[in-house]
Protein backbone atom coordinates (compact mmCIF):
# COMPACT_ATOMS: atom_id res chain seq x y z
CA UNK A 1 0.00 0.00 0.00
CA UNK A 2 2.75 2.38 0.99
CA UNK A 3 4.53 1.41 -2.16
CA UNK A 4 1.56 2.41 -4.29
CA UNK A 5 1.33 5.76 -2.61
CA UNK A 6 5.00 6.39 -3.18
CA UNK A 7 4.70 5.43 -6.83
CA UNK A 8 1.67 7.66 -7.21
CA UNK A 9 3.57 10.55 -5.67
CA UNK A 10 6.52 9.93 -7.94
CA UNK A 11 4.36 9.89 -11.05
CA UNK A 12 2.53 13.01 -9.98
CA UNK A 13 5.76 14.87 -9.44
CA UNK A 14 7.01 13.79 -12.83
CA UNK A 15 3.74 14.90 -14.32
CA UNK A 16 4.21 18.28 -12.71
CA UNK A 17 7.75 18.44 -14.03
CA UNK A 18 6.55 17.59 -17.51
CA UNK A 19 3.79 20.09 -17.23
CA UNK A 20 6.35 22.79 -16.49
CA UNK A 21 8.22 21.76 -19.58
CA UNK A 22 5.03 21.64 -21.57
CA UNK A 23 4.15 25.12 -20.52
CA UNK A 24 7.34 26.54 -21.86
CA UNK A 25 6.70 25.07 -25.27
CA UNK A 26 5.55 27.46 -27.90
CA UNK A 27 5.19 26.17 -31.42
CA UNK A 28 7.83 27.71 -33.49
CA UNK A 29 7.32 29.76 -36.58
CA UNK A 30 10.79 29.66 -37.97
CA UNK A 31 14.15 28.03 -37.59
CA UNK A 32 16.78 29.35 -35.23
CA UNK A 33 20.20 28.36 -34.06
CA UNK A 34 22.04 25.59 -35.74
CA UNK A 35 18.90 24.45 -37.56
CA UNK A 36 18.84 27.69 -39.45
CA UNK A 37 22.43 27.26 -40.42
CA UNK A 38 21.81 23.75 -41.66
CA UNK A 39 18.83 24.88 -43.67
CA UNK A 40 20.70 27.73 -45.26
CA UNK A 41 23.95 25.99 -45.96
CA UNK A 42 23.40 22.29 -45.81
CA UNK A 43 22.66 21.81 -49.44
CA UNK A 44 25.68 23.60 -50.78
CA UNK A 45 28.17 22.50 -48.15
CA UNK A 46 27.30 18.85 -48.05
CA UNK A 47 25.40 18.36 -51.26
CA UNK A 48 22.68 16.02 -50.05
CA UNK A 49 19.05 16.76 -50.79
CA UNK A 50 17.97 15.06 -47.60
CA UNK A 51 19.01 17.53 -44.95
CA UNK A 52 18.54 15.07 -42.16
CA UNK A 53 21.01 12.76 -43.86
CA UNK A 54 23.56 15.51 -44.15
CA UNK A 55 23.22 16.17 -40.45
CA UNK A 56 23.33 12.52 -39.49
CA UNK A 57 26.23 11.50 -41.67
CA UNK A 58 28.39 14.57 -41.90
CA UNK A 59 27.67 17.31 -39.46
CA UNK A 60 26.94 14.99 -36.57
CA UNK A 61 28.67 12.02 -38.09
CA UNK A 62 30.46 11.27 -34.90
CA UNK A 63 27.16 10.55 -33.23
CA UNK A 64 26.31 8.14 -35.98
CA UNK A 65 29.56 6.38 -35.44
CA UNK A 66 28.53 6.00 -31.82
CA UNK A 67 25.14 4.73 -32.83
CA UNK A 68 26.62 2.08 -35.05
CA UNK A 69 28.91 1.14 -32.22
CA UNK A 70 26.02 0.64 -29.84
CA UNK A 71 24.38 -1.77 -32.16
CA UNK A 72 27.67 -3.49 -32.65
CA UNK A 73 28.24 -3.80 -28.93
CA UNK A 74 24.73 -5.04 -28.31
CA UNK A 75 25.11 -7.63 -31.03
CA UNK A 76 28.48 -8.75 -29.75
CA UNK A 77 27.21 -9.10 -26.24
CA UNK A 78 24.24 -11.13 -27.35
CA UNK A 79 26.65 -13.27 -29.33
CA UNK A 80 28.66 -14.35 -26.39
CA UNK A 81 25.81 -14.25 -23.95
CA UNK A 82 23.57 -16.51 -25.88
CA UNK A 83 26.30 -18.76 -27.10
CA UNK A 84 25.22 -22.33 -27.32
CA UNK A 85 27.08 -25.32 -26.09
CA UNK A 86 28.46 -27.56 -28.79
CA UNK A 87 25.96 -30.35 -28.53
CA UNK A 88 23.02 -27.98 -28.61
CA UNK A 89 23.92 -26.72 -32.03
CA UNK A 90 22.69 -29.77 -33.76
CA UNK A 91 19.30 -29.88 -32.13
CA UNK A 92 16.23 -29.03 -33.97
CA UNK A 93 13.67 -26.55 -32.85
CA UNK A 94 10.35 -28.21 -32.48
CA UNK A 95 7.43 -26.10 -33.33
CA UNK A 96 4.11 -26.28 -35.02
CA UNK A 97 4.39 -26.40 -38.71
CA UNK A 98 4.24 -22.99 -40.17
CA UNK A 99 1.25 -22.23 -42.30
CA UNK A 100 1.47 -22.39 -46.02
CA UNK A 101 0.46 -18.78 -46.39
CA UNK A 102 3.41 -17.70 -44.36
CA UNK A 103 5.85 -19.86 -46.26
CA UNK A 104 4.63 -18.80 -49.66
CA UNK A 105 4.38 -15.15 -48.78
CA UNK A 106 7.86 -15.29 -47.37
CA UNK A 107 9.26 -16.76 -50.55
CA UNK A 108 7.72 -13.97 -52.53
CA UNK A 109 8.31 -11.09 -50.21
CA UNK A 110 11.78 -11.66 -48.88
CA UNK A 111 13.68 -10.77 -52.06
CA UNK A 112 11.49 -7.71 -52.51
CA UNK A 113 12.14 -6.67 -48.97
CA UNK A 114 15.86 -7.04 -49.43
CA UNK A 115 15.72 -5.00 -52.60
CA UNK A 116 13.68 -2.33 -50.96
CA UNK A 117 16.10 -2.15 -48.06
CA UNK A 118 19.03 -1.73 -50.40
CA UNK A 119 17.15 0.94 -52.29
CA UNK A 120 16.46 2.83 -49.08
CA UNK A 121 20.03 3.04 -47.95
CA UNK A 122 21.48 3.75 -51.35
CA UNK A 123 19.13 6.66 -51.82
CA UNK A 124 19.51 7.89 -48.28
CA UNK A 125 20.81 11.25 -49.37
CA UNK A 126 17.91 11.90 -51.71
CA UNK A 127 14.79 10.50 -50.16
CA UNK A 128 13.67 9.86 -46.62
CA UNK A 129 15.57 6.98 -45.16
CA UNK A 130 19.15 5.99 -44.90
CA UNK A 131 21.47 3.35 -43.61
CA UNK A 132 19.67 2.48 -40.43
CA UNK A 133 16.29 2.36 -41.99
CA UNK A 134 17.55 0.28 -44.86
CA UNK A 135 19.40 -2.08 -42.62
CA UNK A 136 16.35 -2.53 -40.44
CA UNK A 137 14.28 -3.34 -43.49
CA UNK A 138 16.76 -5.99 -44.57
CA UNK A 139 16.66 -7.46 -41.12
CA UNK A 140 12.88 -7.60 -41.32
CA UNK A 141 13.33 -9.81 -44.30
CA UNK A 142 15.55 -12.09 -42.32
CA UNK A 143 13.04 -12.14 -39.52
CA UNK A 144 10.38 -13.20 -41.97
CA UNK A 145 12.60 -16.00 -43.17
CA UNK A 146 13.10 -17.23 -39.64
CA UNK A 147 9.41 -17.09 -38.88
CA UNK A 148 8.66 -19.06 -41.96
CA UNK A 149 11.20 -21.73 -41.22
CA UNK A 150 12.32 -21.87 -37.61
CA UNK A 151 15.10 -24.27 -38.42
CA UNK A 152 16.62 -22.27 -41.21
CA UNK A 153 20.36 -22.13 -41.15
CA UNK A 154 21.52 -18.62 -41.59
CA UNK A 155 25.02 -18.29 -42.88
CA UNK A 156 26.75 -16.57 -39.99
CA UNK A 157 30.01 -16.44 -41.87
CA UNK A 158 28.59 -14.08 -44.43
CA UNK A 159 27.05 -12.01 -41.68
CA UNK A 160 30.35 -11.67 -39.87
CA UNK A 161 32.22 -10.80 -43.01
CA UNK A 162 29.69 -8.20 -44.05
CA UNK A 163 29.66 -6.74 -40.58
CA UNK A 164 33.41 -6.50 -40.24
CA UNK A 165 34.13 -5.18 -43.68
CA UNK A 166 31.46 -2.52 -43.51
CA UNK A 167 32.60 -1.49 -40.08
CA UNK A 168 36.23 -1.23 -41.05
CA UNK A 169 35.20 0.48 -44.26
CA UNK A 170 33.29 3.08 -42.33
CA UNK A 171 36.26 3.86 -40.10
CA UNK A 172 38.60 3.96 -43.10
CA UNK A 173 36.34 6.44 -44.90
CA UNK A 174 36.37 8.49 -41.77
CA UNK A 175 40.14 8.49 -41.63
CA UNK A 176 40.25 9.42 -45.32
CA UNK A 177 38.14 12.38 -44.35
CA UNK A 178 40.81 13.31 -41.87
CA UNK A 179 43.64 12.96 -44.35
CA UNK A 180 42.07 14.17 -47.57
CA UNK A 181 39.48 16.62 -46.41
CA UNK A 182 38.59 18.82 -43.45
CA UNK A 183 38.23 16.36 -40.63
CA UNK A 184 37.23 12.94 -39.44
CA UNK A 185 34.16 11.75 -41.37
CA UNK A 186 34.13 14.70 -43.70
CA UNK A 187 32.24 13.69 -46.79
CA UNK A 188 34.10 15.87 -49.24
CA UNK A 189 36.69 13.26 -50.06
CA UNK A 190 35.14 12.90 -53.44
CA UNK A 191 33.49 15.66 -55.37
CA UNK A 192 30.04 16.72 -54.36
CA UNK A 193 28.59 15.92 -57.75
CA UNK A 194 25.35 17.16 -59.10
CA UNK A 195 22.76 17.93 -56.55
CA UNK A 196 19.91 15.46 -56.58
CA UNK A 197 21.71 12.79 -58.56
CA UNK A 198 22.44 9.34 -57.22
CA UNK A 199 26.19 9.85 -57.15
CA UNK A 200 26.25 13.08 -55.25
CA UNK A 201 26.97 14.33 -51.79
CA UNK A 202 30.48 12.98 -51.73
CA UNK A 203 31.07 10.03 -49.50
CA UNK A 204 27.56 9.95 -48.04
CA UNK A 205 26.20 7.16 -50.23
CA UNK A 206 29.30 5.12 -49.47
CA UNK A 207 28.97 5.66 -45.77
CA UNK A 208 25.29 4.96 -45.73
CA UNK A 209 25.80 1.81 -47.72
CA UNK A 210 28.32 0.60 -45.22
CA UNK A 211 25.99 1.50 -42.39
CA UNK A 212 23.05 -0.15 -44.06
CA UNK A 213 24.89 -3.39 -44.60
CA UNK A 214 26.37 -3.35 -41.16
CA UNK A 215 23.08 -2.69 -39.42
CA UNK A 216 21.34 -5.29 -41.48
CA UNK A 217 24.00 -7.82 -40.68
CA UNK A 218 24.00 -7.04 -37.00
CA UNK A 219 20.29 -7.21 -36.51
CA UNK A 220 20.22 -10.43 -38.46
CA UNK A 221 22.89 -11.73 -36.19
CA UNK A 222 20.83 -10.85 -33.15
CA UNK A 223 17.80 -12.53 -34.64
CA UNK A 224 19.88 -15.56 -35.43
CA UNK A 225 21.05 -15.79 -31.83
CA UNK A 226 17.49 -15.50 -30.60
CA UNK A 227 16.50 -18.20 -32.99
CA UNK A 228 19.23 -20.53 -31.87
CA UNK A 229 18.63 -19.93 -28.22
CA UNK A 230 15.39 -21.78 -28.57
CA UNK A 231 17.47 -24.90 -28.93
CA UNK A 232 18.52 -24.58 -25.34
CA UNK A 233 15.32 -25.80 -23.88
Amino acid sequence: MLKNIIIAVILIVFAVLFFDLFMLYEARTGLTGIAQYYAQNGAKEVGAANLVTSIVVTYRGFDTLGEVTILFVAASIISFFLKLKENDESKNISSKDTTEILVTASNVLVPVIFLFGIYVFINGHLTPGGGFQGGAIIATGVALMILANPNIKINTQIIHWVESISGVGYVVVGIFGLILAGGFLDNKITGLGEFGALFSAGAIPIIYSFIGLKVGAEISNILNKYQKSQKND
Partner: peptide
Protein backbone atom coordinates in the same frame (compact mmCIF):
# COMPACT_ATOMS: atom_id res chain seq x y z
CA UNK B 1 34.84 16.23 -36.93
CA UNK B 2 32.84 16.18 -40.11
CA UNK B 3 34.92 18.98 -41.53
CA UNK B 4 32.91 21.67 -39.82
CA UNK B 5 33.34 23.78 -36.77
CA UNK B 6 31.18 23.59 -33.65
CA UNK B 7 28.31 24.08 -32.95
CA UNK B 8 27.47 22.74 -36.37
CA UNK B 9 29.54 19.66 -35.93
Amino acid sequence: TGGFKPPFA
